[in-house]
Every structure is written in structure tokens, then in C-alpha cells.
Write a protein that binds this DNA or RNA. Structure first.
Lengths: 261, 261
DNA sequence: CGGTGGATTGAGGTAGATCAACATGCGTGG
DNA sequence: CCACGCATGTTGATCTACCTCAATCCACCG
């Protein structure tokens, strides 16, 4: 098992920077150590405490699964530290990766009773776990938080839509360029701004995310590198040297205005 | 403009069958004529009335846009009658279609302030429109309904995930088989069980949904037809003669159990 | 230092795209 | 009510981006 452990600076950034999100440090949850939950960022202290009380802190080692496709969805998770891949496999070896979850992301809020994908830890992972019934009850009693949760779900949908466009209509180069910029943006939003961008996933996982093969991913990386757009730092990190070029290569979409009725 | 109007039996089925959903006819909304809103199916009469009061009934002609990418998202829509395509276009002509909305579906619940896709009526459409501020206020005041809305959003996400798998890893035949079965299932859930399955979308739209070209769609239809799996009824309707074969061809995914922690 | 799990690189094959010609059917206007 | 015309759909011939298969490389680890 040889996937290089993400270099120190990655793990460090992960927790340290998350905690100083927006510059203001909130008091950490006694149960799970998290500083903030996305659903309740602007929540008053009392209800924040109540929500914290529902969480348990857990850890997983790299390669372990948080849950698998078909499992009963008994819990909702909020990632505190590390990276997770959500994937689904077809009968023959084909696999698709829906996305890579970073600290702050929620997982497992399925409306059906069971999970429809596998969640695998790409690095050692810390997460807060909520029991579904208690979590749901809290949401029912707190419409504003539930609405925020709906909005989070809708965010995820927006991401998934972008991913659909990538898979449906983009070329290999566009896919990789999009993937890199996207990863950098999402890491940045969580204040995981490491000097070279960490790639805690293998080429195979990038391929399954982009709907390509390992070989094509590798070749595209090679081309981007020799064109000077990126620089590979070993195999698990990359420097985006020319983001404007990458943006041009990623062929981001347009949108003209139409009067809304 | 030549897309054949969906045959009579389609439109009839659309409204009539929707109203008799689950056998029990609820009293229609005075404003918008809808019998039920998905968000509030098990809602007590008072709040149901309150929600109804927020809605306006509107209609669109085929080919009109409900909204376009980039427009401010001022409204949430609930389709009452007809079919809508949600799409996004890249700078050059490339386009992707996220999905086809049927009666009962919600659109426009974006968490960002603006729409990220175009919504085009494929048939004449009736929909209920809610103003965002009033809709949000209602949700904030009714946590149970908001939670249900979150669950709807999560349903949409599940659909989008299936779509990602299709686009990422399925062959042309698998894509079309999946598309057909899926459309039939979704129409069935809404009690739009027409004898031949209505295809209110063009080949180009099917292609953009499946990440293929018009020609490939046409060829695959041809192959499925001559293999006896389907029968085309003109160009805007199809009979699924051998659903088991289609299911086998659609290569639906597996899932083994893993003990959830 | 050998072994193992990635990653890269090369050569050749193929599913589906592209380009092009033709068919079909609906709607319009005479 | 019919015929023309355009939008849509089908079918065929070729092309190509990406896949497949295979060899080699590389870094880490015991």
C-alpha cells in the first residue's frame, strides 16, 4: 500500500486553518471537537450547544469505509479533518466517483433510508456523527436550520450539475483543468490553502471522477506540465502555475440574461 | 417549428391522473389549481391553505423559457402539467440537459441567488409559482415542511448521481436503455401511465441528456427496435416491449452490505 | 534490495463523433 | 384541402479522441 501519505503541510492546514475560518474562532464542540457546523453557522449559542450535543466524534484510517452502498442510512456525518471519496461501482469493475469531500462537508443526508454510494477515507479522517432520528427531530424543531440544510443540499446539487456538464460534454483536457481549479477553489473556501495543492487521491480516483482512464489522466497531466500550466510536486501535489490558462482550458460555461417571469 | 405536439392521450393523462394520485382526490388550490404540492402532502388543511395562498398559477407555451441561466432566482416553481427541460450551454454550441421535469416536480430552489441553468418548456406547461421570500419565510416557520423540502432536494441529488454514473461510465446502449426505463418509472410515479410512453423531447434533447450525438441516439433506437426490445410509435412515443431486456442492457449497479459504524 | 502498488509511456484498436446525403412529417399559406 | 418547405430524423462512410493492452519506471517499505 503505497499511496504517499499527504505531506505534513496538508494535514496541518486542514485542521488549523479550518478553525480560524473567517478569522473568528468559535468555541469547539465538547463532543466532537468541531468548531463550526455549516448548518448552524449563524446559530445562537443555546441551539448551537443543543446541536453539538447530538454529535459524536469518530475517526477512520485511510482506506476505511464510513459506509457502503445499500447500508441503512442511520447517520449523518460532518467531516472535520481529512478527505473522503463518494463512489458507486457497476457490476463489472466500472466505477464512478461523485466527489471528494473536504472538512466542513456533510455526508449521508439521503432521503431514502439507505446509502446509495460508498464513502471511503482517502486520508485519515475525523468526522462528527449525528444519529438520524435525533438530527431530523432537531431540524423539524428548527425551521431556519432545516432551510439552511436544504440550501446546503441544493449547493451539492449545483456541484453535481457542474460535474454532469463535465462528464457529458467536456474533453479530457477540459475535465482535468476543471477538476484542478475546482479542487483548489473548494480547498481555498475551507482555508486549506497549501502552497502546492494537495492531491490526496490516486490517478485512478481522478480518472473515475472525470470519467476517463488512468492513462489518459496521466497523459493530460503530462501535457499540462510540459505546456507550463502546472507543475507536479511528486505525485500527490500540484502547483497551478497559470490559472488563467487553466481557466481558458476548462471551458467554463456562459449565461445570458433572460427576463424572469 | 415541427416537433409533433404530444398526442392527446399524453396531455389528458398528465392532469387527470395526477389529480387522482394515490386514489384520493384532495381539494384543488384556489390560486393555482394544483391538487397537491409534494412538499406538503401530509400537511394539515390550515397550513396547506396557507401554502396554497402563496402560489400563482401560470402557463407557458412550448419552447418558452421559464428562466435562463444567470437570471435572478426570484421564484420557485412547481410543475402542474407538461414537461420541462433543464439545461446548460457551453460557449460553443455544446449543451447538456440535466433532466426532464414532470408534473409534481419542483424547480428553481437554488441556494445561490441566481439560476444556474435554462428551463425550457417542451410542451405547453402549467406551473405554480412561489415568490422566494414568502416561500422561504413559510419554510422557516414550518420546520417539518422545510425538512421535507431538504429531502426533496436530496432526492434530486440522488437522481443527479445516477445521471453522473450514466454519463461517466455507461455505453450508448446502456444510456438509452437507462433513460427509457427511468422516464417510464418517473412518469408512472406521477400516474402518467400512457400506453405507449410519451417522448415529449427531440432526439437532440435526448442526446444532450445522455451525452451522445443525435445520430448515435437514432442508431441505438434503431438497434433496440430491430432487436425487439422497443417499438417506436411515430417519433414522439415508444413502447417498451421487453423491459427485462432493457433492464439487463441498462447495467444497473450493485451494492453489497457493509456494517455501518 | 527485492517487492509491491502506483504512475508513466508507447502502440494499436474501437465506440462514438463527424460529415454528408437523404427521408419524413407537420404546419402553413395559397 | 393540398403542396411546399423546413425542422427533425435516419442512414451511411469515414475519422479521431480516448480506451486497451503491455512494458517499464518509480518510490516507498519491509
Amino acid at each position: 500500500m503505497n499511496r504517499p501519505v499527504a505531506p505534513d503541510w496538508f494535514a496541518r492546514a486542514s485542521l488549523a486553518e479550518l478553525c480560524s475560518k473567517r478569522g473568528d474562532v468559535t468555541s469547539p464542540c465538547a463532543n466532537c471537537g468541531a468548531r463550526e457546523f455549516n448548518v448552524c453557522q449563524p446559530l445562537d449559542p443555546d441551539r448551537q450547544t443543543a446541536l453539538y450535543a447530538l454529535a459524536t466524534r469518530l475517526t477512520w484510517k485511510r482506506r476505511e469505509r464510513l459506509f457502503g452502498s445499500g447500508d441503512r442510512a442511520r447517520h449523518v456525518f460532518n467531516i472535520t479533518e481529512g478527505t473522503i471519496a463518494l463512489s458507486r461501482s457497476l457490476g463489472d469493475g466500472r466505477r464512478h466517483i461523485f466527489g471528494f469531500l473536504l472538512p466542513g462537508d456533510f455526508v449521508g443526508f439521503e432521503s431514502s433510508g439507505s446509502h446509495s454510494c460508498d464513502a471511503e477515507a482517502l486520508t485519515d479522517v475525523r468526522a462528527c456523527r449525528f444519529d438520524r432520528p435525533a438530527f431530523d427531530a432537531f431540524m423539524r424543531a428548527n425551521g431556519d436550520v432545516a432551510l439552511r440544510l436544504a440550501s446546503l443540499a441544493s449547493n451539492e446539487l449545483a456541484q453535481s450539475n457542474d460535474h454532469e456538464v463535465l462528464l457529458s460534454r467536456k474533453t479530457a483536457v477540459e475535465r482535468i483543468a476543471t477538476f484542478l481549479l475546482d479542487l483548489k477553489r473548494r480547498a481555498g473556501e475551507r482555508h486549506l490553502r497549501t502552497k502546492p495543492l494537495a492531491l490526496p487521491m490516486t490517478r485512478a480516483q481522478i480518472a473515475d471522477y472525470c470519467g476517463l482512464t488512468i492513462e489518459t489522466v496521466s497523459r493530460v497531466f503530462g501535457r499540462l506540465k510540459s505546456s507550463g500550466a502546472i507543475e507536479l510536486e511528486g505525485t500527490a501535489a500540484v502547483r497551478l502555475l497559470d490559472e488563467d490558462r487553466l481557466r481558458a482550458l476548462s471551458e467554463t460555461d456562459t449565461g445570458e440574461e433572460t427576463p424572469d417571469r
